[in-house]
Amino acid sequence: MAETVLSSGEKIFILHGIDADFRNDGRRRCEYRSMEIETKLMPQTHGSARLHIGNTDILVGIKVELDIPHADKPNEGKLEFFVDCSATATPAFEGKGGDDLATEISNVLIAAYQTRNAFDLKTLCILPHKKCWKIYVDVLILQCGGNLFDAVGIAVKAALNSTEIPKITAATLDGGEPDIELSDDCIQLDTSNYPIIITLCKIGDNYIVDPTLEEEVCSTSSIVMSVLPNGKISSVVKLGCGSIQFNTFTKMLQMGEIIGLKLNKTLMDVLKEENQFGRQRRIFGFLK
């Protein structure tokens, strides 16, 4: 997203504002913009979510398929992430232009969900060595308004929360071949320990969360960390071409953990509230 060009005067203005704990849109350093989230808006998928934060728009679709487990991990299912930067965000993403950013985001997601503490692949196994569930998480980035990693993390968690996997009533080995019977009932995934991704952007001597595009251009380095609801950190990556002091790094980690836990709690409360509307809820999708 190097489309934003800022003059040095604008950069200094942003820098001084952050020093005074007052950003361009009036937020404090540790405040997020308001978010809109809607789940289950794509009926042809098993789970979906749309997240709207500032100018950033993310759409996630989950599809679940039956597959054969890996030979060296026979008791585990599979989880695959695919990120697509659509050209609707910026003309630079046309064709293969958005592939680099897409690979980076999908690598962060893979690292965040890698540990068994976050996502236990053993719950996806049906018949060891023969059949398992494969979950495809497909992220579509429609608009970039800064802070992509956080938005993707929240949208993926919300989409996985709304995923319905058909219940298996019978799974037997019929002469070596697996025989599976599915019912119409669905089971939900246990998303209580799924990670939330937090980006902390270092600008000048301070660090902020939820940067806008202009603030991202001003920063030399940022830390992307994924926080699990039980307080553990499942992945940390540093982005950007600048370096950080050790003390700053520790402080950023601690702030990220606090914010991550708070954000996760708010997200789960909102999703529970949405769930209470039940199946009668009117789905707006992009019409609102």
């Binding site: 976050a118 307080g231 950190i233 499942s234 992945s235 940390v236 002091q245 980690l253 953990e257």
Partner: peptide, 30 residues
């Protein structure tokens, strides 16, 4: 890290660790 300037240039963590342990580990690494 850049040891001559006392700066961290890249961090890469995978797993499930709490922040205090990360702090101790990064001290050892630096």
């Amino acid at each position: 890290s850049l040891p001559q300037h006392n700066q961290i240039s890249e961090v890469f963590l995978i797993g499930s660790i709490d922040t205090n342990t990360i702090k101790q580990a990064t001290e050892i690494l630096t």
